[in-house]
Design a binder for these strands. Structure first.
Lengths: 156, 156
DNA sequence: AGTACTCCTACCAACTCAGTAGGAGATTAT
DNA sequence: ATAATCTCCTACTGAGTTGGTAGGAGTACT
């Protein structure tokens, strides 16, 4: 079975790293190696992912010996919608219903008459409603709930 | 920009063909060639897609000279959810929240503690709620509305 | 100076997607 | 009977994406 509407590994690794970094907030830079070991993510792959998050302004980094990554933006300002779009592109399952990356379907003759567009827009809107209103902070809270707040075990 | 959560061309072609066939219901078998010309879908590609729909029991076919395809199931019993799953796999964006094709995420240590799972389940449920309650019949109705019911122009 | 980290470019194997090619088998019309 | 016209089926292909690796330059602390 193929899962073509699925979150990429890149996105999952990125999200899990952000949750980890949020839980460690205020403790100075965390190194790629630590995250990669703790969350079982290939180190070199993780490097590229964290770099993307830094270039987007969500993370900040420090170079050199005691360098590493830490949150730049407050986790209550980072939405899941933003993150999923960052990693995997628009939420819309057809380009002609995307808010953030609209494009005509190249195989659709007249989009105003397109019933597929209509139903897929409903789906997009429902997904966006959830993802754009869920913040990283809320996800971390939920994660703490699920794990038991006091444990320092980073099940995300 | 990459669209990794997108409907495949296969799915779009399949859906458009089904809408076309629904509108022609009761008029005997419609040939691949006609559909492919009318909807601008590559003929050989369409062959494979219609065959899948037949093997799934949604379409029926007739071989030979005046053969072709026609609906086997009534369009009010065919849901968009079923069709999207048939073409593109599970709706869930992570396998561990799929109702129809559950699987553990191989990179997730303990799913009951996974906050990503939690939010993605909300998204899946919202999408499924829409897609599983929208039938092919409703989509065709909507298409007729959008096109003007009397025109015989198959903008879908 | 040495060490340990981030940053950056280039590369790679495996897989998926969107088709094509060619023909066997079925059915009808002549 | 046979030609025509359709579906059915297998195999193949080129382009693009995913999930990484390799190697090293640059940066900062000790």
């Amino acid at each position: 079975m193929v899962y073509s509407l699925m979150l990429s590994r890149r996105a999952k690794y990125g999200l899990r790293s952000l949750i980890y970094l949020t839980k460690q907030k205020g403790q100075g830079p965390i190194q790629i190696r630590e995250i990669s070991e703790e969350l079982a993510i290939p180190r070199k792959f993780l490097e590229a992912i964290l770099l993307d998050l830094r270039n987007d302004g969500i993370l900040q980094s420090r170079q050199g010996k005691i360098g590493g990554y830490f949150l730049e933006r407050s986790p209550d300002t980072v939405t899941m919608g933003h993150l999923v779009r960052l990693f995997d592109g628009p939420l819309a399952s057809v380009p002609c219903v995307s808010q953030t990356a609209y494009a005509r379907c190249d195989d659709c003759t007249e989009e105003h008459h397109c019933a597929i567009r209509w139903v897929m827009k409903e789906v997009r809107d429902a997904s966006a409603r959830i993802l754009d209103q869920t913040t990283l902070e809320q996800v971390v809270e939920k994660s703490n709930q699920l794990c038991g707040r006091d444990e320092i075990e980073y099940q995300i």
